[in-house]
């Protein structure tokens, strides 16, 4: 491991509600090394997205803070590019123009027009979108949109790439493709990545470390699991790998035994909106691994 690039220390956040402040996160401490791939996993409503948004600077911690390369994060910025869950592309711009907006903003002073053009196309090709650079988001599939979203984030050359359930809305096959693409890109560029996921297989397959979060309110980090599987990793051969399965089991045990959601009342589901109830379903419908195992863990 190389030097620590990003550090969360004593991060707590409260949201004001009519019934008084709601403590969403309590004392989150985490150090992430340069080039490391870290997944955040936990049940819905445990504050994974909140952690990511604090690192992104979109939310401000009530106590504690986030330090990137020795500087405290106080506002959003392109050195902490975010890949949003629902792609968040501007629907009136083509794939090329969407990436261009980011490139123009970040490299205005360093690049001339031709260099920008080359850089935009390079990044779109990196996510295998070279064939559809002049298509608008409405004209391409969900997986392709997410690819463009990733290209836009990569094109900012971020120090840290933040991904908020980037593949959550995609079908299983598309998700597997994108996971492979992401591993490829990560191998080449060696970005520091923080990714939120609900998918146990995804977490084990992609991560160097898996950060498992306890249930909210006052959620914090429950366990951290280091995944010492050699890279490049292959989902097919890993399926029979005992070490891989041990890691999976460890995560599943954390999620469904230690942090089992017992208060899954309908009222609560409603309040949590779209996110609620998704985690168990998704884990059961796992793409790559042994489905029976996920189900038995659920039962």
């Amino acid at each position: 491991m190389t030097r620590t690039q990003l550090e969360l220390s004593g991060v707590s956040i409260e949201f004001p509600t009519p019934k008084g402040p709601f403590l969403a996160l309590d004392n989150v401490n985490l150090k992430i090394a340069e080039g490391e791939f870290v997944s955040l996993i936990g049940h819905s409503g445990c504050g994974k997205s909140t952690v990511l948004n604090i690192v992104a600077g979109l939310l401000q911690a009530t106590r504690g803070g986030c330090i990137l390369d020795g500087k405290e994060v106080s506002e959003p910025g392109p050195e902490r590019a975010v890949v949003f869950q629902n792609h968040s592309l501007l629907p009136w711009l083509t794939a090329y123009q969407n990436v261009e907006l980011a490139v123009q903003q970040v490299f205005r002073k360093q690049m001339n027009k031709a260099q920008m053009r080359e850089w935009i196309i390079h990044n779109l090709e990196l996510v295998h979108m070279g064939h559809a650079i002049h298509k608008r988001p409405g004209e391409i599939s969900g997986g392709m949109k997410q690819r463009v979203g990733i290209a836009r984030a990569l094109a900012m050359q971020p120090k840290v790439l933040l991904m908020d359930e980037p593949f959550g809305a995609l079908d299983a096959l598309t998700r597997a493709h994108l996971q492979d693409s992401l591993m490829e890109i990560q191998r080449d560029l060696n970005n520091t990545v923080i990714m939120i996921t609900h998918d146990v297989d995804e977490a084990v397959l992609l991560s160097d470390r898996i950060v498992m979060m306890t249930n909210g309110p006052a959620a914090t980090i429950g366990e951290i699991l280091s995944i010492d599987l050699p890279r490049p990793r292959n989902r097919v051969t890993l399926a029979d790998d005992p070490a891989y399965n041990r890691y999976r089991q460890a995560v599943l045990r954390f999620l469904y035994e230690k942090q089992r959601k017992v208060t899954d009342l309908p009222v609560k589901r409603k309040r949590e909106g779209m996110e609620s109830g998704k985690a168990p379903v998704k884990a059961a419908a796992d793409t790559t691994g042994d489905q029976g195992q996920a189900r038995s863990a659920l039962a």
């Binding site: 992104a56 959003p76 949003f84 968040s88 501007l90 907006l101 900012m156």
Partner: peptide
């Protein structure tokens, strides 16, 4: 949409660019 506003914040678009490139088209 708040998602697009977040994109704009991450990109640190200046106010005028934000209005011109994000708000008006949407």
């Amino acid at each position: 949409s708040s998602d697009l506003q977040n994109v704009s914040r991450v990109l640190r678009l200046p106010w005028l660019t934000h209005v011109r490139r994000i708000v008006l088209p949407s």
